[in-house]
Design a protein around this nucleic acid. Structure first.
Length: 480
RNA sequence: GGCGCUAUCGUCUAAGGGUUAGGACGGAGCCCUCUCAAGGCUCAAAUACGGGUUCGAAUCCCGUUAGCGCUACCA
Protein backbone atom coordinates (compact mmCIF):
# COMPACT_ATOMS: atom_id res chain seq x y z
CA UNK A 1 0.00 0.00 0.00
CA UNK A 2 1.56 3.25 -1.12
CA UNK A 3 1.42 6.25 1.17
CA UNK A 4 2.47 9.72 0.05
CA UNK A 5 2.30 13.10 1.67
CA UNK A 6 2.23 16.76 0.80
CA UNK A 7 3.86 18.75 3.59
CA UNK A 8 3.61 22.50 3.16
CA UNK A 9 4.89 24.90 5.75
CA UNK A 10 2.41 27.69 6.36
CA UNK A 11 4.73 30.60 5.72
CA UNK A 12 3.06 32.08 2.63
CA UNK A 13 0.18 31.40 0.32
CA UNK A 14 -0.12 28.26 -1.79
CA UNK A 15 2.74 28.61 -4.24
CA UNK A 16 2.19 27.20 -7.71
CA UNK A 17 5.23 24.97 -7.28
CA UNK A 18 3.72 23.60 -4.09
CA UNK A 19 0.42 23.11 -5.83
CA UNK A 20 2.17 21.10 -8.50
CA UNK A 21 3.91 19.00 -5.86
CA UNK A 22 0.54 18.34 -4.26
CA UNK A 23 -0.91 17.35 -7.62
CA UNK A 24 1.91 14.94 -8.43
CA UNK A 25 1.55 13.30 -5.04
CA UNK A 26 -2.19 13.07 -5.52
CA UNK A 27 -1.75 11.62 -8.98
CA UNK A 28 0.62 8.96 -7.72
CA UNK A 29 -1.69 8.06 -4.85
CA UNK A 30 -4.77 7.82 -7.06
CA UNK A 31 -2.90 5.93 -9.75
CA UNK A 32 -1.93 3.21 -7.30
CA UNK A 33 -4.91 3.25 -4.95
CA UNK A 34 -2.62 4.68 -2.34
CA UNK A 35 -3.18 7.07 0.53
CA UNK A 36 -2.77 10.82 0.16
CA UNK A 37 -1.72 12.60 3.32
CA UNK A 38 -1.72 16.32 4.03
CA UNK A 39 0.74 17.29 6.73
CA UNK A 40 1.16 20.87 7.87
CA UNK A 41 4.84 21.31 8.63
CA UNK A 42 4.59 24.06 11.19
CA UNK A 43 7.63 23.54 13.37
CA UNK A 44 8.96 27.03 12.78
CA UNK A 45 6.53 28.83 15.05
CA UNK A 46 8.10 32.18 14.33
CA UNK A 47 7.23 32.18 10.67
CA UNK A 48 3.92 30.39 10.59
CA UNK A 49 0.73 32.33 10.22
CA UNK A 50 -2.92 31.41 10.30
CA UNK A 51 -3.49 33.52 7.19
CA UNK A 52 -0.97 31.46 5.35
CA UNK A 53 -2.53 28.21 6.46
CA UNK A 54 -5.95 29.47 5.38
CA UNK A 55 -4.66 30.43 1.98
CA UNK A 56 -3.13 27.01 1.51
CA UNK A 57 -6.47 25.36 2.26
CA UNK A 58 -8.21 27.91 0.02
CA UNK A 59 -5.89 27.02 -2.82
CA UNK A 60 -6.30 23.28 -2.37
CA UNK A 61 -10.05 23.62 -2.11
CA UNK A 62 -10.12 25.56 -5.36
CA UNK A 63 -8.07 22.88 -7.11
CA UNK A 64 -10.70 20.46 -5.92
CA UNK A 65 -8.32 17.68 -4.97
CA UNK A 66 -8.86 15.69 -1.81
CA UNK A 67 -6.69 13.88 0.70
CA UNK A 68 -7.25 10.93 2.98
CA UNK A 69 -5.43 11.78 6.19
CA UNK A 70 -4.36 15.03 7.76
CA UNK A 71 -1.73 15.82 10.40
CA UNK A 72 -0.11 18.81 11.97
CA UNK A 73 3.53 18.60 12.92
CA UNK A 74 3.23 20.88 15.92
CA UNK A 75 0.91 18.29 17.48
CA UNK A 76 3.51 15.58 17.11
CA UNK A 77 6.41 17.20 18.94
CA UNK A 78 6.53 14.39 21.47
CA UNK A 79 7.21 11.91 18.73
CA UNK A 80 9.99 14.07 17.32
CA UNK A 81 11.61 14.44 20.73
CA UNK A 82 11.34 10.74 21.43
CA UNK A 83 12.92 9.77 18.16
CA UNK A 84 15.61 12.43 18.50
CA UNK A 85 16.62 11.04 21.86
CA UNK A 86 16.57 7.56 20.41
CA UNK A 87 19.13 8.72 17.86
CA UNK A 88 21.13 10.39 20.62
CA UNK A 89 21.10 7.33 22.87
CA UNK A 90 22.21 5.17 19.97
CA UNK A 91 25.24 7.43 19.62
CA UNK A 92 24.26 8.88 16.28
CA UNK A 93 23.94 12.41 17.63
CA UNK A 94 25.68 14.65 20.13
CA UNK A 95 25.01 17.85 22.02
CA UNK A 96 26.63 20.99 20.68
CA UNK A 97 26.84 23.65 23.36
CA UNK A 98 28.28 26.33 21.08
CA UNK A 99 26.21 29.49 21.54
CA UNK A 100 24.23 30.47 18.47
CA UNK A 101 26.07 33.75 17.99
CA UNK A 102 29.45 32.09 18.19
CA UNK A 103 28.45 29.42 15.72
CA UNK A 104 27.26 32.02 13.26
CA UNK A 105 30.52 33.89 13.71
CA UNK A 106 32.54 30.79 13.07
CA UNK A 107 30.62 29.97 9.93
CA UNK A 108 31.25 33.50 8.77
CA UNK A 109 34.96 33.32 9.54
CA UNK A 110 35.43 30.28 7.34
CA UNK A 111 33.88 32.22 4.50
CA UNK A 112 31.57 30.10 2.48
CA UNK A 113 33.90 27.19 3.00
CA UNK A 114 32.37 23.88 3.90
CA UNK A 115 31.64 23.58 7.56
CA UNK A 116 31.57 20.01 8.72
CA UNK A 117 31.54 19.88 12.47
CA UNK A 118 33.00 21.25 15.66
CA UNK A 119 35.32 18.43 16.83
CA UNK A 120 35.38 19.75 20.41
CA UNK A 121 31.66 19.22 20.67
CA UNK A 122 31.50 16.11 18.58
CA UNK A 123 34.06 14.41 20.82
CA UNK A 124 32.79 15.81 24.10
CA UNK A 125 32.74 12.99 26.69
CA UNK A 126 29.24 11.79 27.48
CA UNK A 127 29.63 12.56 31.19
CA UNK A 128 30.51 16.18 30.53
CA UNK A 129 27.73 16.47 27.98
CA UNK A 130 25.23 15.11 30.50
CA UNK A 131 26.53 17.37 33.25
CA UNK A 132 26.27 20.54 31.16
CA UNK A 133 22.84 19.57 29.89
CA UNK A 134 21.68 18.86 33.43
CA UNK A 135 23.03 22.27 34.48
CA UNK A 136 20.67 23.79 31.99
CA UNK A 137 23.21 24.88 29.40
CA UNK A 138 21.44 25.21 26.04
CA UNK A 139 22.55 22.99 23.21
CA UNK A 140 21.76 21.95 19.68
CA UNK A 141 21.49 18.26 19.02
CA UNK A 142 23.57 17.43 15.98
CA UNK A 143 23.68 14.33 13.87
CA UNK A 144 27.03 12.57 14.09
CA UNK A 145 27.67 12.07 10.39
CA UNK A 146 29.84 8.97 10.04
CA UNK A 147 33.21 9.91 8.60
CA UNK A 148 35.78 7.55 9.98
CA UNK A 149 36.00 6.11 7.58
CA UNK A 150 34.25 8.33 5.11
CA UNK A 151 31.68 6.52 3.03
CA UNK A 152 29.20 7.21 0.27
CA UNK A 153 25.52 7.52 0.94
CA UNK A 154 23.57 6.27 -2.04
CA UNK A 155 20.00 5.94 -3.16
CA UNK A 156 18.10 5.65 -6.39
CA UNK A 157 15.81 8.52 -7.11
CA UNK A 158 12.70 7.59 -9.08
CA UNK A 159 13.29 10.58 -11.32
CA UNK A 160 16.98 11.42 -11.14
CA UNK A 161 18.34 7.91 -10.96
CA UNK A 162 21.38 6.78 -8.98
CA UNK A 163 22.54 9.36 -6.45
CA UNK A 164 25.63 9.35 -4.31
CA UNK A 165 27.34 11.70 -1.91
CA UNK A 166 30.31 11.26 0.37
CA UNK A 167 29.83 11.77 4.08
CA UNK A 168 32.95 13.92 3.82
CA UNK A 169 30.68 16.48 2.19
CA UNK A 170 27.83 16.34 4.66
CA UNK A 171 28.00 18.57 7.71
CA UNK A 172 26.84 17.60 11.18
CA UNK A 173 23.37 19.05 10.75
CA UNK A 174 21.01 19.97 13.56
CA UNK A 175 18.22 17.69 14.74
CA UNK A 176 16.99 19.70 17.68
CA UNK A 177 17.30 23.43 18.14
CA UNK A 178 18.45 24.94 21.42
CA UNK A 179 14.81 25.65 22.28
CA UNK A 180 14.12 21.93 22.07
CA UNK A 181 12.05 22.10 18.90
CA UNK A 182 12.95 19.77 16.07
CA UNK A 183 14.44 21.06 12.85
CA UNK A 184 12.79 20.35 9.54
CA UNK A 185 15.04 17.35 8.91
CA UNK A 186 14.22 15.74 12.24
CA UNK A 187 10.50 16.43 12.26
CA UNK A 188 10.06 15.48 8.65
CA UNK A 189 11.88 12.17 8.89
CA UNK A 190 10.31 11.27 12.21
CA UNK A 191 6.86 11.84 10.75
CA UNK A 192 7.64 10.15 7.47
CA UNK A 193 8.83 7.10 9.38
CA UNK A 194 5.94 7.12 11.80
CA UNK A 195 3.32 7.68 9.12
CA UNK A 196 4.94 4.90 7.09
CA UNK A 197 5.33 7.10 4.04
CA UNK A 198 6.31 4.87 1.13
CA UNK A 199 7.26 7.54 -1.41
CA UNK A 200 8.46 11.03 -0.80
CA UNK A 201 7.58 13.13 -3.83
CA UNK A 202 8.89 16.66 -3.45
CA UNK A 203 10.81 19.46 -5.13
CA UNK A 204 14.31 18.95 -6.42
CA UNK A 205 15.53 21.54 -3.92
CA UNK A 206 15.46 18.65 -1.46
CA UNK A 207 17.58 16.32 -3.53
CA UNK A 208 20.76 17.03 -1.58
CA UNK A 209 18.90 16.98 1.71
CA UNK A 210 17.93 13.42 0.97
CA UNK A 211 21.37 12.15 1.99
CA UNK A 212 20.82 13.60 5.45
CA UNK A 213 17.38 12.10 5.58
CA UNK A 214 18.69 8.67 4.71
CA UNK A 215 21.17 9.02 7.54
CA UNK A 216 18.30 9.80 9.90
CA UNK A 217 16.15 6.92 8.72
CA UNK A 218 19.11 4.58 9.18
CA UNK A 219 19.79 5.90 12.65
CA UNK A 220 16.15 5.36 13.48
CA UNK A 221 16.36 1.79 12.26
CA UNK A 222 13.62 2.63 9.78
CA UNK A 223 13.54 1.69 6.14
CA UNK A 224 13.90 4.83 4.07
CA UNK A 225 11.01 5.54 1.72
CA UNK A 226 11.50 5.73 -2.02
CA UNK A 227 12.26 9.23 -3.28
CA UNK A 228 11.03 11.04 -6.35
CA UNK A 229 12.26 14.56 -6.84
CA UNK A 230 10.51 16.96 -9.15
CA UNK A 231 12.21 19.53 -11.36
CA UNK A 232 11.55 23.03 -10.10
CA UNK A 233 9.32 25.70 -11.57
CA UNK A 234 11.35 28.79 -12.36
CA UNK A 235 10.80 32.29 -13.71
CA UNK A 236 11.75 33.40 -17.23
CA UNK A 237 14.88 34.99 -15.77
CA UNK A 238 15.92 31.57 -14.52
CA UNK A 239 15.42 32.43 -10.88
CA UNK A 240 13.34 30.45 -8.45
CA UNK A 241 9.83 31.84 -8.29
CA UNK A 242 9.48 34.19 -5.38
CA UNK A 243 6.77 36.51 -4.22
CA UNK A 244 9.17 39.34 -3.55
CA UNK A 245 10.73 39.18 -6.97
CA UNK A 246 7.93 37.97 -9.21
CA UNK A 247 4.76 39.06 -7.49
CA UNK A 248 1.39 37.38 -7.63
CA UNK A 249 2.22 35.02 -10.49
CA UNK A 250 3.51 32.56 -7.93
CA UNK A 251 0.19 32.23 -6.13
CA UNK A 252 -2.51 29.86 -7.30
CA UNK A 253 -5.13 32.38 -6.26
CA UNK A 254 -3.95 34.56 -9.13
CA UNK A 255 -5.13 31.96 -11.58
CA UNK A 256 -8.35 31.39 -9.70
CA UNK A 257 -9.06 35.12 -9.75
CA UNK A 258 -8.09 35.33 -13.42
CA UNK A 259 -11.02 33.04 -14.16
CA UNK A 260 -9.24 29.77 -14.73
CA UNK A 261 -10.99 26.45 -14.58
CA UNK A 262 -9.18 24.49 -11.88
CA UNK A 263 -9.07 21.39 -14.07
CA UNK A 264 -7.35 23.40 -16.81
CA UNK A 265 -4.88 24.87 -14.41
CA UNK A 266 -4.07 21.44 -13.03
CA UNK A 267 -3.57 20.25 -16.59
CA UNK A 268 -1.16 23.10 -17.21
CA UNK A 269 0.83 22.42 -14.06
CA UNK A 270 1.08 18.73 -14.90
CA UNK A 271 2.60 19.51 -18.27
CA UNK A 272 5.39 21.41 -16.58
CA UNK A 273 7.93 18.68 -15.99
CA UNK A 274 5.77 15.73 -16.92
CA UNK A 275 4.43 14.49 -20.22
CA UNK A 276 2.30 11.56 -21.33
CA UNK A 277 4.79 10.49 -24.04
CA UNK A 278 2.20 10.95 -26.73
CA UNK A 279 1.06 14.25 -28.14
CA UNK A 280 -1.86 14.77 -25.84
CA UNK A 281 -2.08 18.19 -24.26
CA UNK A 282 -5.61 18.72 -23.03
CA UNK A 283 -6.31 16.12 -20.38
CA UNK A 284 -8.50 15.79 -17.35
CA UNK A 285 -6.98 14.99 -13.99
CA UNK A 286 -8.50 11.52 -14.17
CA UNK A 287 -7.01 10.86 -17.57
CA UNK A 288 -3.65 11.86 -16.18
CA UNK A 289 -4.10 9.79 -13.04
CA UNK A 290 -4.76 6.76 -15.22
CA UNK A 291 -1.35 6.94 -16.87
CA UNK A 292 0.80 8.89 -14.45
CA UNK A 293 4.24 7.52 -13.78
CA UNK A 294 7.64 8.78 -12.68
CA UNK A 295 9.03 7.85 -16.07
CA UNK A 296 7.18 10.72 -17.64
CA UNK A 297 8.86 13.22 -15.36
CA UNK A 298 11.91 14.96 -16.75
CA UNK A 299 14.90 16.33 -14.92
CA UNK A 300 15.33 19.92 -15.95
CA UNK A 301 13.59 22.88 -14.41
CA UNK A 302 10.59 24.32 -16.23
CA UNK A 303 10.03 27.98 -16.92
CA UNK A 304 6.64 29.47 -16.19
CA UNK A 305 6.43 31.78 -19.15
CA UNK A 306 5.04 35.02 -17.80
CA UNK A 307 6.09 38.58 -18.42
CA UNK A 308 5.49 42.02 -17.00
CA UNK A 309 2.88 42.74 -19.66
CA UNK A 310 1.18 39.40 -19.25
CA UNK A 311 1.40 37.62 -15.90
CA UNK A 312 -0.22 34.48 -17.28
CA UNK A 313 1.59 31.81 -19.27
CA UNK A 314 0.07 31.79 -22.80
CA UNK A 315 -0.07 28.04 -22.81
CA UNK A 316 -2.11 28.04 -19.63
CA UNK A 317 -4.52 30.40 -21.32
CA UNK A 318 -4.78 28.18 -24.36
CA UNK A 319 -5.34 25.07 -22.27
CA UNK A 320 -8.03 26.90 -20.35
CA UNK A 321 -9.83 27.81 -23.54
CA UNK A 322 -9.67 24.16 -24.58
CA UNK A 323 -11.22 23.03 -21.32
CA UNK A 324 -13.79 25.80 -21.50
CA UNK A 325 -14.82 24.72 -24.97
CA UNK A 326 -15.12 21.09 -23.90
CA UNK A 327 -17.51 21.89 -21.06
CA UNK A 328 -21.15 20.87 -21.60
CA UNK A 329 -23.24 23.99 -22.18
CA UNK A 330 -25.29 23.62 -19.03
CA UNK A 331 -22.17 23.17 -16.94
CA UNK A 332 -20.63 26.19 -18.56
CA UNK A 333 -23.75 28.22 -17.93
CA UNK A 334 -23.78 27.41 -14.25
CA UNK A 335 -20.05 28.13 -13.92
CA UNK A 336 -20.76 31.51 -15.50
CA UNK A 337 -23.24 32.47 -12.78
CA UNK A 338 -20.75 33.80 -10.24
CA UNK A 339 -19.01 35.82 -12.93
CA UNK A 340 -22.28 37.36 -14.06
CA UNK A 341 -23.05 38.22 -10.47
CA UNK A 342 -19.56 39.61 -10.08
CA UNK A 343 -20.21 41.95 -13.00
CA UNK A 344 -23.37 43.10 -11.29
CA UNK A 345 -25.77 41.37 -13.64
CA UNK A 346 -28.78 39.24 -12.83
CA UNK A 347 -29.38 36.88 -15.72
CA UNK A 348 -32.95 35.77 -16.32
CA UNK A 349 -33.59 32.06 -15.83
CA UNK A 350 -32.16 30.21 -18.78
CA UNK A 351 -30.44 33.28 -20.19
CA UNK A 352 -26.92 32.06 -19.51
CA UNK A 353 -27.81 28.79 -21.15
CA UNK A 354 -28.63 30.71 -24.33
CA UNK A 355 -25.57 32.93 -24.14
CA UNK A 356 -23.01 30.26 -23.27
CA UNK A 357 -22.74 28.68 -26.72
CA UNK A 358 -22.30 32.10 -28.31
CA UNK A 359 -19.35 33.12 -26.20
CA UNK A 360 -17.61 29.88 -25.27
CA UNK A 361 -14.96 30.10 -27.98
CA UNK A 362 -14.51 33.81 -27.39
CA UNK A 363 -13.32 33.55 -23.81
CA UNK A 364 -9.86 32.46 -22.76
CA UNK A 365 -10.91 32.59 -19.13
CA UNK A 366 -14.03 33.54 -17.21
CA UNK A 367 -12.58 36.95 -16.70
CA UNK A 368 -13.32 37.63 -20.37
CA UNK A 369 -17.01 36.98 -19.75
CA UNK A 370 -17.88 40.54 -18.76
CA UNK A 371 -16.31 42.11 -21.81
CA UNK A 372 -17.64 39.49 -24.22
CA UNK A 373 -21.22 39.29 -22.99
CA UNK A 374 -21.91 42.78 -21.63
CA UNK A 375 -24.45 43.79 -24.29
CA UNK A 376 -26.77 40.97 -23.28
CA UNK A 377 -27.18 42.59 -19.89
CA UNK A 378 -26.65 46.33 -20.31
CA UNK A 379 -29.71 48.36 -21.34
CA UNK A 380 -29.28 50.92 -22.57
CA UNK A 381 -25.93 50.11 -24.15
CA UNK A 382 -22.95 52.19 -23.09
CA UNK A 383 -22.37 55.13 -25.47
CA UNK A 384 -20.46 54.38 -28.66
CA UNK A 385 -19.25 56.37 -31.64
CA UNK A 386 -22.00 56.60 -34.31
CA UNK A 387 -19.23 56.28 -36.90
CA UNK A 388 -19.01 52.64 -35.90
CA UNK A 389 -22.39 52.14 -37.52
CA UNK A 390 -21.02 52.97 -40.95
CA UNK A 391 -20.29 49.79 -42.92
CA UNK A 392 -17.17 49.02 -44.92
CA UNK A 393 -17.05 51.02 -48.15
CA UNK A 394 -20.24 52.76 -47.14
CA UNK A 395 -21.29 56.04 -45.61
CA UNK A 396 -23.74 57.42 -43.09
CA UNK A 397 -26.52 57.35 -45.61
CA UNK A 398 -25.96 53.66 -46.22
CA UNK A 399 -25.95 52.97 -42.50
CA UNK A 400 -29.26 54.76 -42.12
CA UNK A 401 -30.75 52.97 -45.10
CA UNK A 402 -29.65 49.61 -43.72
CA UNK A 403 -31.03 50.28 -40.27
CA UNK A 404 -34.34 51.56 -41.64
CA UNK A 405 -34.73 48.51 -43.77
CA UNK A 406 -33.69 46.24 -40.89
CA UNK A 407 -36.38 47.77 -38.71
CA UNK A 408 -39.17 46.84 -41.04
CA UNK A 409 -37.75 43.45 -41.85
CA UNK A 410 -37.06 42.52 -38.24
CA UNK A 411 -40.48 43.65 -37.17
CA UNK A 412 -41.82 40.71 -39.08
CA UNK A 413 -39.00 38.18 -39.33
CA UNK A 414 -38.88 34.96 -37.40
CA UNK A 415 -36.24 35.42 -34.67
CA UNK A 416 -34.27 32.24 -35.28
CA UNK A 417 -30.93 31.73 -36.93
CA UNK A 418 -32.46 30.60 -40.22
CA UNK A 419 -35.29 33.10 -40.18
CA UNK A 420 -32.97 36.03 -39.60
CA UNK A 421 -30.45 34.73 -42.10
CA UNK A 422 -33.05 34.59 -44.86
CA UNK A 423 -34.72 37.86 -44.02
CA UNK A 424 -31.57 39.93 -43.69
CA UNK A 425 -29.84 38.55 -46.76
CA UNK A 426 -32.96 39.20 -48.80
CA UNK A 427 -33.13 42.72 -47.40
CA UNK A 428 -29.52 43.38 -48.35
CA UNK A 429 -30.20 42.32 -51.90
CA UNK A 430 -33.29 44.49 -52.06
CA UNK A 431 -31.51 47.67 -51.04
CA UNK A 432 -28.41 46.83 -53.05
CA UNK A 433 -25.78 46.39 -50.35
CA UNK A 434 -23.51 43.47 -49.65
CA UNK A 435 -24.46 41.11 -46.87
CA UNK A 436 -21.55 42.31 -44.76
CA UNK A 437 -22.59 45.90 -45.24
CA UNK A 438 -26.05 44.96 -44.08
CA UNK A 439 -24.93 43.02 -41.02
CA UNK A 440 -22.36 45.36 -39.61
CA UNK A 441 -24.60 48.36 -38.83
CA UNK A 442 -27.13 46.03 -37.25
CA UNK A 443 -24.44 44.36 -35.18
CA UNK A 444 -23.14 47.66 -33.89
CA UNK A 445 -26.64 48.90 -33.18
CA UNK A 446 -27.51 45.75 -31.28
CA UNK A 447 -24.21 45.13 -29.51
CA UNK A 448 -22.66 48.57 -29.29
CA UNK A 449 -19.49 47.49 -31.04
CA UNK A 450 -18.15 45.87 -34.15
CA UNK A 451 -16.78 42.77 -32.51
CA UNK A 452 -19.44 40.41 -31.26
CA UNK A 453 -20.70 36.85 -31.64
CA UNK A 454 -22.39 35.88 -34.93
CA UNK A 455 -25.28 38.19 -35.69
CA UNK A 456 -28.23 35.86 -36.19
CA UNK A 457 -27.72 33.86 -33.03
CA UNK A 458 -27.09 37.03 -31.12
CA UNK A 459 -30.26 38.73 -32.30
CA UNK A 460 -32.22 35.58 -31.61
CA UNK A 461 -31.07 35.70 -27.99
CA UNK A 462 -31.59 39.43 -27.68
CA UNK A 463 -35.13 39.10 -29.00
CA UNK A 464 -37.24 41.20 -31.31
CA UNK A 465 -38.31 43.85 -28.83
CA UNK A 466 -34.86 44.79 -27.58
CA UNK A 467 -33.38 44.62 -31.06
CA UNK A 468 -35.92 47.08 -32.43
CA UNK A 469 -35.37 49.46 -29.53
CA UNK A 470 -31.64 49.45 -30.22
CA UNK A 471 -32.11 49.94 -33.95
CA UNK A 472 -34.22 53.00 -33.24
CA UNK A 473 -31.67 54.39 -30.88
CA UNK A 474 -28.86 53.87 -33.42
CA UNK A 475 -30.91 55.60 -36.08
CA UNK A 476 -31.40 58.54 -33.76
CA UNK A 477 -27.65 58.72 -33.17
CA UNK A 478 -27.07 58.78 -36.89
CA UNK A 479 -29.41 61.69 -37.38
CA UNK A 480 -28.13 63.87 -34.61
C1' G B 1 34.42 28.33 -2.30
C1' G B 2 32.72 22.88 -1.55
C1' C B 3 29.17 19.29 -2.98
C1' G B 4 24.99 17.83 -5.92
C1' C B 5 21.65 18.30 -10.15
C1' U B 6 20.53 20.00 -15.10
C1' A B 7 21.43 21.56 -20.39
C1' U B 8 16.74 20.05 -27.72
C1' C B 9 13.02 25.86 -31.33
C1' G B 10 11.37 32.27 -27.41
C1' U B 11 8.36 28.69 -23.89
C1' C B 12 6.46 23.42 -22.60
C1' U B 13 8.36 19.02 -24.62
C1' A B 14 9.18 14.05 -28.03
C1' A B 15 13.18 11.24 -30.10
C1' G B 16 16.96 6.77 -24.42
C1' G B 17 23.09 5.01 -31.34
C1' G B 18 20.71 5.23 -37.58
C1' U B 19 14.48 10.41 -38.13
C1' U B 20 14.30 15.71 -43.55
C1' A B 21 15.37 16.23 -34.96
C1' G B 22 8.49 15.36 -34.14
C1' G B 23 4.30 17.85 -31.46
C1' A B 24 2.12 22.02 -28.69
C1' C B 25 1.88 27.32 -27.17
C1' G B 26 3.25 31.91 -29.00
C1' G B 27 4.67 34.57 -33.90
C1' A B 28 4.01 35.25 -39.44
C1' G B 29 1.05 34.06 -43.81
C1' C B 30 -3.04 31.75 -46.40
C1' C B 31 -8.00 29.45 -46.35
C1' C B 32 -12.91 29.50 -44.24
C1' U B 33 -16.21 33.59 -43.01
C1' C B 34 -21.59 38.61 -41.52
C1' U B 35 -17.29 41.16 -37.47
C1' C B 36 -14.38 38.71 -33.73
C1' A B 37 -13.23 34.11 -32.41
C1' A B 38 -12.90 28.90 -33.31
C1' G B 39 -11.13 25.59 -37.06
C1' G B 40 -7.89 24.00 -41.36
C1' C B 41 -3.23 24.54 -44.13
C1' U B 42 1.78 26.66 -44.64
C1' C B 43 6.27 29.12 -42.93
C1' A B 44 10.21 30.81 -39.52
C1' A B 45 12.36 28.70 -35.12
C1' A B 46 16.48 24.08 -31.35
C1' U B 47 20.27 19.57 -30.01
C1' A B 48 25.32 25.28 -25.17
C1' C B 49 30.78 24.56 -26.49
C1' G B 50 35.12 21.22 -27.09
C1' G B 51 37.01 16.52 -27.10
C1' G B 52 36.46 11.30 -27.24
C1' U B 53 33.85 6.03 -28.00
C1' U B 54 31.47 4.22 -32.58
C1' C B 55 30.72 2.47 -39.38
C1' G B 56 27.21 6.02 -37.23
C1' A B 57 26.02 10.49 -31.35
C1' A B 58 20.73 15.08 -29.48
C1' U B 59 21.27 10.18 -27.34
C1' C B 60 27.17 6.94 -24.17
C1' C B 61 32.01 8.97 -21.68
C1' C B 62 35.28 13.20 -20.30
C1' G B 63 36.18 18.38 -19.98
C1' U B 64 34.47 23.52 -20.41
C1' U B 65 30.65 26.97 -19.87
C1' A B 66 26.01 28.34 -17.99
C1' G B 67 21.76 27.80 -14.82
C1' C B 68 19.61 25.86 -10.49
C1' G B 69 19.87 23.59 -5.63
C1' C B 70 22.16 22.38 -0.83
C1' U B 71 25.99 24.19 2.21
C1' A B 72 20.96 27.72 8.95
C1' C B 73 19.34 26.35 15.81
C1' C B 74 14.30 27.99 7.45
C1' A B 75 11.48 24.56 5.28
Amino acid sequence: MFRVRFAPSPTGYLHIGSARTFIFNWLFARRHDGTMILRIDDTDAGRNTQTSEDSIFDGLRWLGLDWDEQYRQSERLDLHATLASKIFEAGHAYRDFTPAEEAAEKAHATGAATWLCNPDMRELPREESDRRAAAGEPFVLRFRVPREPVRDITFTDEVYGAQSKSTADIEDFALLRSNGLPTYHMASCADDADLRISHIIRGQDHLTNTFKHILIFDALGATAPRFAHLPLLIAPDGAKLSKRKHGPVVSVTTYRDAGFLPEAYINFLCLLGWNPKDDREKMSINEIAAIFSFEGINRSNAVVNFSDEDPIDPKALWLNSQHLYALPVDTLASRLEPWAAGAGWSPAPGQLLQIAPLIRERMKTFRDFASVADFFFLEPLPPFDPAELVPQKGDTAMAAKVLERAKTVLAAAEFTHDGLDQALRAAAAEIGVKAGQMFQPIRVAACGRKVAPPLFETLAVLGRELTLVRLDRALAMLRS
